[in-house]
Amino acid sequence: MCLLKARQGCILPRPPNMENMIKVKERLYKWLFTILAFASLIFLVGIVIVLFKEALPIFKKVKALEFIFGKFWYPTYDPPEFGIFPLILASVWVSVGAMLVCVPLGVGSALYLNEIASHKQKAVLKPLVEILASIPSIVYGFFGMVVLAPFLQNLLHLPIGLCAFTASLTLGIMATPTVCSIAEDALSYVPKSFREASFAVGANRWQTLVKVVIPAAGSGISTAIILGMSRAIGETMTVLMVAGGAAVIPKSFFDPVRPMTSAIAAEMGEAPMGSDHFHALFAIALILFLITFVFNVIAEAISRKYRIKLGLSG
């Protein structure tokens, strides 16, 4: 008992005003974080409001359906035509193409890293992949424009190297490290005990991978794919540089195209503020926003469905 008291005595008593200071500090932090949290919410709401406000005027001139499904995008002609179907189609083509590249490559390399690579290989490769994922998109765009486009043009005897195909390939290569990195994380979160259980009943490696590990990592892998896809759809710089820029409905993968993002980026500078063209570009942005929003909702729904299936949470 005595000893205990003596020990307690060792701790310096706090000066009374220090207690106060700690309380004030705590309150300060609380406020700071509340403000920060609300700030991001306010920014989001602000962006949505601005998008709607600037986009709506165009729908007084053009009907929404005509705007979306109109085949001609001649915003600077007289009279102008505001049909963004070629742009939407370009975005879809390029994104789907990019998916076809980045999903097999990204998921495949994640499986390699997780299942086949030795510890040493993984220790080198995983950080490398993460570095690749953080390279600015303009570098990929530059690579696509200067290296890939001429190469493909020669190889496939194309009239122009800058086309939907090149854009898909560049975007796909760009999104691969992101997909790989996230998918690999998901795979490595699969508990070792699942694999052991599978091997213990006589499954081989391939069966274990396909029937146990991949399904268990399913939500993570689909998140990886959807994030990769969002990156492809929302990507601006790269497509601006390599997609070719023609706002006509593409007839083949080797036609130059103008996806929605590059239309906005390329034309915003020329469109006089408050003009129809200006509002039309905002409307494109709004539609793009809605598309990615739907994507995210789907991603969330998928991962929740998986979680329920796994019995992790409601």
């Binding site: 508990p191 005990s193 699942f194 052991e196 259980a197 599978s198 213990a200 009943v201 006589g202 499954a203 081989n204 069966q207 029937k211 146990v212 399904p215 268990a216 299936k309 796994l310 019995g311």
Partner: peptide, 24 residues
């Protein structure tokens, strides 16, 4: 056969957990 320290059923349904060994 082996039973482990921590129960480690697969994240599948009860039936599939048992049919798994037969399927593979």
């Amino acid at each position: 056969g082996m039973v482990f320290q921590k129960p480690n059923p697969f994240p599948k349904n009860i039936f599939e957990n048992i049919s798994y060994g037969l399927e593979v």
